[in-house]
Structures are given as C-alpha cells and as structure tokens.
Computed example of a mutant assay.
Amino acid sequence: MTRVVRLTYADGMDGPQKPKQKPNWTEVPPRDWAEEQAHRVALEVSRLRGKRTGQWLADRTRELGYPLTRAVISDIEVGRRRYVTTAELIVLARALDTAPIALLYPAPYRDTIQILPTPEGGQPRDFQKIVAVQWFSGDPKPTLDLPDNSAQPELTLDALGLSMVDQMNYDSHLLALTRARKASDLAARKWDLIAKLRVRRNAKRQGLDKVSDEELDDLTAEIGELQERIDELWKLGGRDLHAEAVDEMFGDRDGG
C-alpha cells in the first residue's frame, strides 16, 4: 500500500521558502566603522580584478599557497561577507600585484575617512586617507595636512587622542621599526656606491677615464662606514638607550 504525503504550508505561502539571502553593499551599505574597513577592501579588490573572473583570482591565491574560493571572493566583493582577515588581505594584495595597505587604504589619498571607531561618549573624526597610511605604516611623526594659513601642522598623534605618555610609548614601541627603516635606507645608499665603485674600477682598468686611487679609496671607505652604521642600527634593534641611561643613573627602582 502506497502512502500519499501531502505537504501543507502556512497561510499566505505558495510553497517552501528559499533561504534568506545575506544583504549586499548596495542594499545595505556599511553599518559601522568595522564594515567600512571591509567595504574599502572589497571595492579595491573588485576594481583591480577588473574583467578577470573570480575564479582567476581564486586560482591566483591557490598558487600563492593560501587558497580563497571563488565564493569567498564573491562574498567579500558584494558584501555578503563583511570582514576580511589579515591573511586574506595579504594574499589578495599579492595576487593583485599591490600592497596590503593599498587595499585597506586605496587612493585617492586626500579623501577623508574615519581612521578609528567612535570613542564611547565621543564624536567620530575624519582624517585624510594618507594620514591613515602614515599611522598604519608606523610613521614616527605622521602629520595632518592643514590649510596653508595654519600656524603649524598638527601632529596626528595629538589629534588621535594620544596623551604625552601614550606618545612616548608609541615612540618607544617603534624604535626597532624606525631603526630598521634607517638601516634599509643606508643599505640602498651602500649598494649605489658599490655599483659606482665597480664602474669606476672598470673605467680605470680599461683606461676609459681618469680615475685616481684616492677616488677609489674614498668610495671604499664610505662603503665601509655605511656598513658600520647599518650593523649598529640592526644591533640596537628596539633598545631604548635613553631609558637604559636613566636606569643606569638612578639604579633599579624596585631595589630601593
């Protein structure tokens, strides 16, 4: 005997309901500061992908060792998924031949955005996007671009609400980064001089130009001095020499 099962639906329903679709950026724009971050990344990923398919981008991330599915990429771009992880930001930037910070803060950089969430009991404050880039990149002295008639530029750290103590901590925490950047700049200068030294040595060897031994010695000495400065910066790392000097002068505070 065959049993017939009859399906019935609630009043006003013509049939089984489809799963409710998550809202996209067009239907529901970013609702808070956190979603604004994802929205900027989504727009830039979509722009850089251009006419290439989502599957192409998914394949690129797989080749790079951190695969994102076509569905995930689509959800990020259209706003069904309203967050982007750090790992996703990095691999998407590499796949699209850009930098992670340029996905998070794309041009134009004179546009204003809200860098930080609105503090409790406070008001939101917008800054030029380049300021966000400077701060996010660990610029030791990010500065606001104020009108030409301003008496002096306003330090972004002040505008971001960092107290004097907070700013001292900020500087201390960035010591290693600041020194590493300086070492990198000096290394670039060193390699320029090495290339110049090779050219001048070849010119002297082939008799193409008048090159004195003194000139070659000066270049060699300058390269050596740069290397010493580079080595010292890497050796210092994040050590706070000022704090060490104070501790040495006054002794261990906990020791009495």
Rank of each mutant, 00 (worst) to 15 (best):
V165E: 15
A95Y: 02
S74T: 09
T118Q: 07
L68I: 05
R62D: 15
A99M: 14
T53G: 09
P142N: 01
E63Q: 14
L144E: 08
I115K: 02
V84E: 05
N149D: 15
D171I: 11
L68F: 05
D126H: 11
E120K: 06
L157G: 03
D75T: 02
L116Y: 10
Q128C: 02
L160W: 03
A71I: 05
L103A: 12
G79Q: 07
L177R: 11
A95L: 06
P140G: 01
A93P: 11
I115P: 12
Y83P: 02
I130C: 09
T98P: 06
I130G: 03
S137P: 13
L92N: 06
Q152D: 13
R81G: 05
P153I: 00
Q134E: 12
D158F: 09
P100M: 07
D75E: 13
I76N: 03
P119G: 07
A93K: 01
I113Y: 06
V165M: 13
V72I: 15
L160K: 05
V84F: 07
L68T: 07
L146I: 06
L57F: 10
G138P: 10
P153G: 01
L174W: 07
P100D: 14
M164C: 05
L175V: 12
I113W: 09
R125K: 14
L160C: 03
A151L: 15
P106V: 07
P153L: 01
R81Q: 13
P117H: 05
W135P: 03
I113R: 04
L157A: 04
I130N: 09
E88G: 04
L96F: 12
E77K: 00
G79A: 07
Y170G: 12
E88C: 02
R179T: 14
I130E: 08
L68K: 03
D145T: 03
G161Y: 02
Q114I: 13
Q128W: 01
G121L: 08
P100Y: 04
D75L: 00
L64V: 13
Q128M: 10
W56N: 05
S150E: 13
S137C: 13
Y170A: 11
Y83N: 14
G122C: 02
A95W: 05
I73A: 01
D166Y: 08
V131W: 00
D139M: 02
T86Q: 09
D126Y: 10
P142E: 00
D97C: 10
D145E: 12
L68V: 07
D158E: 07
L174S: 05
D148P: 10
G161M: 09
L144Y: 00
A102F: 15
L157K: 01
T143H: 00
V84D: 09
L103G: 11
A95E: 10
L155W: 03
F127L: 06
V84R: 04
A176Y: 12
F127G: 01
F136H: 14
V131G: 00
K129C: 11
A180I: 12
D158N: 10
R60L: 14
E120L: 11
V84Q: 03
L68P: 10
Q134C: 05
A180C: 12
R94N: 12
T86N: 06
R179D: 15
Y66F: 15
T178K: 06
L68R: 00
T98H: 09
L162A: 04
